[in-house]
């Protein structure tokens, strides 16, 4: 079965990982800008990173037949440096007309601090002004519920942002309905440790259905598994779900959300080479 991984940080992964994902049926990925494991020191450091996301990674993905899309921002983990964050936000429009850019992301909160809120709101201003899609990072542990509520509160401050053009990522059992009931799309991140598992993600699908929801691996430089979406497919199959149900969440939903971006162009795998 073909699938799309809507959230994976391939700059941290090897070309072997791309190839394994392709062999498992991955036909497209989207890669949000994120934290490198250390704080970058200058706006030019971010400019170079955004060039990697918009120039080099699409080529590397294409070498194994995967279509590469990306999201641009300064991650919440670096938002404590408000001055640098503002320089990066001012530079982001340089990249918004690149063909593989889907929108602004992953923005949001990490520790729910006032500076993170300031920079999140300034990203929202930019996204509203440029009518870009938004991909939201929510905190991962005890701060997830509070952070998700705060993020939704701040988005609601914007009457010019349509929740149907926003994806709230890393939802779990206690936050999935907050996202769906408020009209957002949502992502479930499958991680080998501390976060959601393929089994729990399948439970969530059983509880809330298949509309506006999709799993992702969020594979990065830490303990993570870029083939986690394939694991989810296997878990859903083991439970007796139909291929149509599984395809809806691992392929059709990401395509539907990405299609809201004015730049999104996609060649279905069965039409390649035509």
């Amino acid at each position: 079965m073909y699938f799309i991984d809507p959230h994976v940080h391939m700059v941290s992964r090897t070309t072997d990982d791309y190839e394994i994902m392709a062999r498992m049926g991955c036909t497209a990925i989207s890669e949000p800008a994120f934290w490198a494991g250390y704080d970058r020191g200058s706006v030019d450091g971010f400019r170079d990173y955004f060039r990697q996301l918009t120039e080099f990674e699409p080529q590397r993905a294409a070498s194994v037949g995967i279509q590469h899309y990306t999201w641009i921002c300064i991650n919440a983990k670096e938002a404590e440096n408000v001055e640098l964050s503002r320089e990066v936000i001012a530079m982001i429009p340089e990249f918004l007309d690149k063909p593989n850019v889907l929108g602004i992301g992953e923005i949001g909160l990490n520790k729910n601090t006032p500076n993170e809120c300031t920079i999140f709101r300034e990203h929202l201003e930019l996204a509203a002004k440029t009518n870009e899609l938004i991909l939201i990072h929510t905190p991962h542990l005890w701060d997830k519920y509070k952070g998700t509520r705060m993020i939704i509160d701040m988005i609601k401050e914007h009457s010019d942002i349509d929740p149907g053009r926003v994806l709230i990522d890393h939802v779990e059992e206690h936050t999935v309905k907050l996202a769906l009931d408020n009209g957002f799309w949502c992502g479930m991140t499958l991680y080998p440790t501390t976060k959601c598992t393929p089994a729990r993600a399948s439970d969530i699908i059983e509880m809330v259905g298949t509309e506006r929801i999709m799993p992702n691996s969020a594979g990065d430089w830490g303990p993570s598994k870029p083939t986690a979406v394939a694991d989810f497919i296997m878990e859903m199959r083991k439970r007796g779900n139909s291929d149509a149900t599984i395809k809806k969440v691992v392929y059709e939903n990401p395509l539907s959300f990405f299609s809201l971006s004015k730049r999104f162009e996609f060649t279905p795998p069965e039409q390649r080479g035509e």
Partner: peptide, 8 residues
């Protein structure tokens, strides 16, 4: 999850 969560 809520038991292990910060208060909103």
């Amino acid at each position: 999850q809520l038991h292990f969560s910060d208060q909103y």
